[in-house]
Computed example of a mutant assay.
Amino acid sequence: MQHRVRAVLLTPNNTMLLIKRIRPGIDPYWVIVGGKIEPTDASPEDALRREVREEIAGEAEIVSVLHTIEDSDERQDFYLATIEKWSFEDRTGPEFSQEDRGEYLLEEIPLTADALDAVNLLPQEIAAVLRNAVERGELLAAR
């Protein structure tokens, strides 16, 4: 089973960082920063910090596990985290150098239900979890 970790990154601007994916023949969609746990990672949290460094050249402060999605092939742990600084131009993840992978754009999304509804955030289950957390004020409270 593939094990992935993702960081719901809350910024000082009361926004969330998402990566917009643009691929030929597919409608644009947004994903949460993260990736698979590598054998060299000491823990899921270390893997998450590595992924944040690779994908947005930032340092995440992990707050808590927010949600887990699991099926027979994959487990994804979504962590709530804060971030103060990042530099998308300095990203180093191997996926960014593969031309056939399409475009990656970093976007700050306001922590509102309307802003979340305006993007095609995948997987849909985490989009619903985040929308509910926003409506209850939980994301702003974590910041």
Rank of each mutant, 00 (worst) to 15 (best):
residue 106 L to K: 12
residue 121 L to Y: 06
residue 111 L to P: 08
residue 134 V to I: 14
residue 22 I to M: 03
residue 61 E to D: 14
residue 38 E to C: 04
residue 14 N to R: 12
residue 98 Q to S: 03
residue 53 R to N: 15
residue 41 D to R: 07
residue 70 E to V: 14
residue 140 L to K: 09
residue 16 M to S: 10
residue 68 T to S: 04
residue 25 G to F: 10
residue 143 R to H: 09
residue 19 I to G: 10
residue 11 T to R: 04
residue 13 N to C: 02
residue 94 P to A: 04
residue 82 T to H: 03
residue 52 V to Y: 09
residue 116 L to C: 07
residue 124 Q to H: 14
residue 30 W to Q: 12
residue 37 I to S: 01
residue 48 L to V: 08
residue 125 E to Y: 08
residue 17 L to E: 15
residue 120 N to G: 02
residue 18 L to G: 08
residue 61 E to C: 03
residue 116 L to P: 14
residue 121 L to Q: 04
residue 127 A to P: 03
residue 74 E to H: 05
residue 45 E to V: 02
residue 119 V to L: 04
residue 132 N to A: 09
residue 46 D to G: 01
residue 36 K to V: 15
residue 52 V to C: 05
residue 72 S to R: 07
residue 50 R to E: 08
residue 76 Q to Y: 10
residue 30 W to D: 06
residue 45 E to F: 01
residue 22 I to S: 14
residue 90 D to R: 10
residue 1 M to E: 06
residue 57 A to K: 13
residue 79 Y to C: 03
residue 57 A to I: 00
residue 48 L to N: 05
residue 96 F to L: 04
residue 53 R to Q: 14
residue 28 P to R: 08
residue 119 V to A: 06
residue 110 P to S: 07
residue 135 E to T: 15
residue 6 R to L: 04
residue 101 R to L: 09
residue 18 L to W: 05
residue 16 M to D: 11
residue 141 A to Y: 06
residue 113 A to D: 11
residue 88 F to W: 12
residue 82 T to P: 01
residue 49 R to N: 14
residue 5 V to C: 03
residue 60 A to L: 08
residue 28 P to F: 01
residue 86 W to M: 01
residue 134 V to E: 05
residue 27 D to S: 13
residue 117 D to W: 13
residue 18 L to Y: 01
residue 60 A to T: 11
residue 123 P to D: 02
residue 136 R to V: 06
residue 101 R to Y: 05
residue 86 W to Q: 02
residue 27 D to P: 13
residue 14 N to F: 13
residue 79 Y to S: 10
residue 43 S to L: 07
residue 8 V to P: 04
residue 47 A to Q: 12
residue 91 R to H: 11
residue 29 Y to Q: 04
residue 1 M to R: 03
residue 60 A to E: 12
residue 113 A to R: 13
residue 97 S to Y: 09
residue 142 A to H: 12
residue 41 D to A: 07
